[in-house]
């Protein structure tokens, strides 16, 4: 009986592993294929063997140093506009905008959520629900009017316009998530602190913030992903090639004369890398944090 159970257990574990491996292989294949393409020489582009016969870093070098998209010959004058040369600038823009968006969304929504869960005033219970409703509004609806608002503010074609645009996407949900978290932080601890003579700011900093940390991490990840992934807003708001974030910049590779797939996949890999690093650190919190609410993608 005991032996049968162990065998069954082993069999079951084997089955679970086999299924897991199959599902994971299928899921990860697109990313793996992109990575493999990015190190495949152009001459081998049409071959579909899993592993490239030769490995090259040419596509990555081209991303950083620029590669002409047009046939150049005969000592033709070379203008200063090959899009690949801007990859680093796009990368920096994406980092700046995503970090700024994250800081702003988390800051504003934490303050608001704290206010809603700790103070009493009319309309207090309604705000989070209205806010969540706001999160369901498709961005296609407000992106054009928002642009018309950005221009008189003097922000058009500048990175701060993107931060504003992204915050308008993230804020309602961040606020909902923080509200859900802070609601579950027991108020008694804070009251004890206050009675002990700590100021509200001390209480907020020393007691509330540590307890709300999983929520803050979840909202941060969420804001970062939204900002890093957006295409629509940046496409409408930004024109200058050096001011673009990665998403819109990389789509410029589809213009010109041909599609440079090696370059494209190298860009795809480098664009995904920061998220992979981030993901490794926060994976644990992701399930806890997002489990509290539900997240838009």
């Amino acid at each position: 009986m005991a032996i049968r159970r162990t065998t069954r257990k082993r069999l079951r574990a084997g089955l679970v592993y086999a299924t897991l491996v199959a599902v994971t292989a299928l899921t990860c294949f697109p990313l793996a294929w992109a990575a493999l393409t990015s190190i495949r020489p152009n001459e081998e582009m049409l071959k579909t063997g899993l592993i490239p016969e030769h490995v090259t870093a040419a596509h990555y070098r081209a991303l950083l140093a620029g590669r002409s998209m047009y046939f150049e010959a005969g000592g033709a004058y070379r203008p200063s506009t090959a899009p690949a040369q801007h990859f680093l600038a796009w990368f920096a823009n994406s980092v700046v905008v995503s970090v700024a968006t994250t800081v702003l969304s988390v800051g504003v929504s934490t303050l608001a959520a704290y206010s809603l869960t700790r103070f009493r005033f009319p309309g207090q219970s309604l705000v989070p629900y209205v806010s969540l409703l706001g999160y369901m509004v498709p961005s296609i609806i407000y992106v054009f009017p928002l642009f018309l608002l950005i221009v008189p503010l003097g922000l058009a074609d500048r990175l701060p316009s993107l931060v504003l645009g992204y915050v308008s996407i993230t804020l309602p949900f961040c606020m909902w998530l923080m509200w859900a978290f802070l609601k579950s932080v027991p108020i008694e601890v804070e009251e004890a602190g206050l009675i002990d003579g700590a100021s509200r700011f001390q209480v907020f900093r020393l007691i509330v913030l540590p307890l709300a940390l999983p929520g803050i991490i979840a909202t941060s990840i969420f804001s970062f992903i939204v900002a890093w992934n957006d295409y629509l807003i940046a496409r409408i708001f930004i024109n200058t090639i050096t001011q673009l974030p990665l998403t819109v910049g990389v789509m410029h590779f589809f213009e010109g004369v041909h599609v440079d797939w090696g370059l494209m996949m190298a860009a795809a890999v480098l664009m995904t890398l920061p998220l992979a690093v981030l993901f490794m650190f926060v994976q644990r919190h992701l399930i806890v944090g997002f489990g509290a609410g539900a997240v838009k993608g």
Binding site: S68, M69, Y77, P79, S80, T81, N239, T240, E255
Partner: peptide
């Protein structure tokens, strides 16, 4: 700001 279509020539003009 100068708008150009994809191609190297807009850059030459600028």
């Amino acid at each position: 700001r100068v708008w150009g279509e994809p191609g190297p020539y807009g850059g030459v003009g600028v």
